[in-house]
Each structure stands twice: as structure tokens, then as C-alpha cells.
Write a protein that binds this DNA or RNA. Structure first.
Lengths: 239, 239
DNA sequence: TTCATACATTTTGAATGCATAATGCACTTT
DNA sequence: AAAGTGCATTATGCATTCAAAATGTATGAA
């Protein structure tokens, strides 16, 4: 019919709500992503004018986005002196890891109430893929799958508000967390902990999974602190 | 000398950092307060123009504040259709209470590591004042002191990030929480739980205090849900 | 040279302006 | 009268403008 002339099928969309994201939401996500993959590095200035040009927008929606990101703690606004990507301090890590531990523990507990066998199978597959990267010493791949497992558990918790609270915290510590994995000792230990995590999820043992996830994260705390309190030669503590 | 002529002593401030809060920060706090005490009621529109006039500012900083409050979930932005004070649904309560439970539990655990005898004495004084209001059936006073006790424990945790994460959640459920106290059954039970909470804090038993705070909050969940899912005659579910 | 100062330039915070979308209301039509 | 239609009004999202603050730079003094 008409659709085929237009070259695409619109039948599926006729009664859905039309989503019109506003600029500032879109920009929040883009800047999030840029901080995530370090196009905007911790401790550097957020180049307002450049970003406006790059995104082809005016300063108003960009600045709205900056306020939102600042309230997440992802960037820091210095009055009259611009926006800067927040740098992680050892004190921040001391504060944030216990919080994230509590939230991950909750995610594990809730996940056990909802997890199907297929879900466990999915996590198991990720787990053994991660184990493979571990034995091969492939750190970036290990780290990526590791993230996926924790994200999957968070998803199984089926609590969008929990994810929303957790996400900005996780993003703030993500880079430091990645670097902390460099320590091989900790890497082996983390892998053993993950065995137990999978086991507890399989058994739907919410309390145990919660405790494991919490300890797993707290164990990383010291490693992360060591990394970020060791300035490299550029004086740039975490990049 | 000069200070006394001006009528106040400025000697204490000479080397402190001069704080210059930006407009949008100030406005975020004001609107927070207005939602808190229901000058802006749940489910109603946030009157952008009125607020601009009232605060004597332009739309730009106000709108920046609205984006921040929206990212906290305190208000909801409908594209091209204004800002509305977020209304609490039973689903929200189901999601938020376990999260707040986990965070309060953590606050209790951390508090036990830092609490001095003087701090315990302070909480004890609040506790018995609250008990008095309970026996007298003075609900608003009871509720206020109850808040103060939980706030005090959060403060003793000495983790600003924890407070920052907790605060927006607490504010979202605050009104529903207040109404839930109306149920006398729950009120007596809550009072007994508070006895135990004080006891655990006094003993610096972090694990126990954590468990108590968590259960305390979870116990409120059902009462709160009952309240908000019972629309009143105006069809306004929580006001 | 190093340091301080004055001045031009840039950046920032907030107000204003403008195009588009949503809303309210008079007017029709049945 | 109830429901639909078209138009005027208002509100919204974003761009632009403007004043104040911060920054960079050239000049002069020690």
C-alpha cells in the first residue's frame, strides 16, 4: 500500500505516543557519554562555546544541561569560572563506595525475586565469557563484561528508581574503577567473588547475593583509592 | 573599631571563602521548600510566570532550576506543557522505600562508627520528647521530631554524598509518609521500633541498627501505599 | 629580569526576544 | 443544548543580547 511506496512500514507506530525529547535532555546524555569515554577528561574545563558549536545549539539548553549534570555531581560549576569535569578524590571514593555497595546489595536482593532460569543462563554466559578474558589477561574486555553482569543484575531488580539513583554514582567512579582493575591481585580475587555471585543468583539467595555484592564493591575501595591517590607524571591524578 | 560602627563584627570572616550562590541554586532551594510545605501541591502545575515575578527574576534561571528539580524527580516536565509537581503513585512507593531503606540502613551503620556519648544523649532527648508527643497523640509534633531523629542519624553517618543521594528521595515521599502516620496501629508499632533503634545506637551496634532502620521503613511501606491509593473526595490522591 | 598595574578581550550569568506549540473561547452546526 | 471548528491568546523552548566578572596582555616600576 502507501507505506510500501514510501519505502517503510509505518503501521507499527500509528497509536504510539510520539516522543519529542527536548534539547537539554539530549545534551545531558551526550555530555554524559563524552565524560564516560573521556572526550571530556576529569579535572578539565567543559568548553561551553565549543560544545554549542559542535551540537549546533545556543548556550541556553547547554547551560540547562550543565546544571543537571552538576546536580548529579558529574561536573562542578565554579561561579563565574565555568564548568569542570569533577575529579575523584580519595574522600569521594570513601563516601561513594559504601553507598554503591548498599544499592548494589539491594539490586541483588530484588533480582533474586524476579530472576528466571533464562536470566540466570544469560548471566552465566556472561560470567564464563568474562572468565575467559580473565585467563587471557584481556583487561578491557573483562571490564566491559563485568559491567554488563552488574548492569544485568541491576536490570533484574526491576526497579527503575534504583537504577536512576545508582547510575550517576556509578558513572562518577567508573574511570577509577577501571584503573583499579589493573592490580592483578585484586583481579584474581574479584574473579573468585564473581563465582560466588553467580552461585548465589542461581540459588536465588537474595541475602547472600546482597552480602557478596556489597563486599565485592567494598573490596575494590582500597584498590581504587590507591590508584587515584597516585598522581601520574602529568600531575593528573586519574587520567 | 570600624566593625562596631557598622554594628556587627566582621573579624571572623576575613579569611573565609566568600560564597556567592548563583540564582538557580537559590531558586532550587526555594522551590524545594515550597513543595516541602505544599505551597506547591503534588499534581499541580508549577506556575513559571508567577514564580518569576515572586522571585523578581527572569525565566532563564527559573527554568534551569526546574530542570534540576526534574532530574531529582521532584517535578515532572511535560514537553511544551509545563512543569508539574510529581504525584506519588503506589508503584513509586514500592520502588522508593526499599532504596531509602538501604540508604537509611547504611546511615545507621556508619553512624555507629562516629557517634559520641553526647550524640547519643542528643538522640535520646529527641526520642523521649517524641515519646511524649506520642502519648499525647500530638501527631504533627511527633512527626517533626521523628524526622529530626532520622536526620540526626544521617548526619552522624558523616557522609555528605549519602545525604545528597537520600534527600531527594526522602522529600518525594515525605508527604505520603506523614499521612501514613495517621494510622494509630502503625504509630504504636513505630514507637516500639524507635525504642530499639535508640538502643542499638546506644550500643553502637551498626548491623542491628541498620537492620532496624531498614525494617522500620519497610513497615511503613504498606501504610503509605494504603494512604496514597485511597483517593479523597476531591479525587486528589495524596493531598 | 620579575613583579605589579591598567586596559582590552573573553567568558559568564541572567534578561530579553522570537518562533512554534498548546490552550481557551467564541462561533457555528447539528 | 452538545459537540465540533477556527481563531486569538498564552505558554514554552530556544536563540540572542547585555552587563558584570574573570582572564590575558602590554606596559612600566623596582
Amino acid at each position: 500500500m502507501d507505506e510500501s511506496i514510501l519505502g517503510h512500514d509505518i503501521a507499527g507506530d500509528v497509536d504510539g505516543i510520539i516522543s519529542r525529547p527536548t534539547l537539554h535532555e539530549e545534551i545531558v546524555e551526550r555530555i554524559r557519554a563524552m565524560i564516560f569515554d573521556e572526550q571530556l577528561a576529569a579535572g578539565t574545563r567543559v568548553p561551553e562555546r565549543d560544545l554549542c558549536q559542535r551540537f549546533g545549539i545556543s548556550r541556553t539548553p547547554l547551560r540547562e544541561a550543565l546544571k543537571v549534570l552538576a546536580s548529579d555531581g558529574l561536573i562542578t560549576l565554579l561561579p563565574n569560572r565555568g564548568a569542570w569535569v569533577t575529579r575523584m578524590t580519595p574522600e569521594d571514593v570513601d563516601e561513594l563506595f559504601p553507598i554503591m555497595g548498599a544499592l548494589e546489595a539491594l539490586s541483588g536482593e530484588l533480582a533474586c525475586e524476579n530472576t528466571s532460569d533464562a536470566d540466570v543462563a544469560e548471566v552465566r554466559a556472561l560470567h564464563y565469557q568474562m572468565a575467559l578474558h580473565h585467563t587471557r589477561g584481556e583487561q578491557p574486555e573483562y571490564f566491559r563484561i563485568n559491567q554488563q553482569i552488574h548492569d544485568k543484575i541491576m536490570e533484574l531488580a526491576d526497579n527503575p528508581s534504583l537504577f536512576q539513583v545508582y547510575r550517576p554514582l556509578a558513572q562518577r567512579v567508573r574511570r577509577a574503577r577501571y584503573l583499579a582493575n589493573a592490580s592483578i591481585n585484586r583481579w584474581d580475587a574479584a574473579m573468585r567473588e564473581h563465582e560466588e555471585i553467580l552461585d548465589a543468583l542461581d540459588a536465588r539467595d537474595g541475602k547472600r547475593l546482597a552480602a557478596l555484592l556489597r563486599v565485592h564493591l567494598l573490596n575494590k575501595l582500597e584498590a581504587v583509592k590507591r590508584v587515584i591517590s597516585t598522581p601520574d607524571e602529568k600531575g593528573d591524578v586519574i587520567s
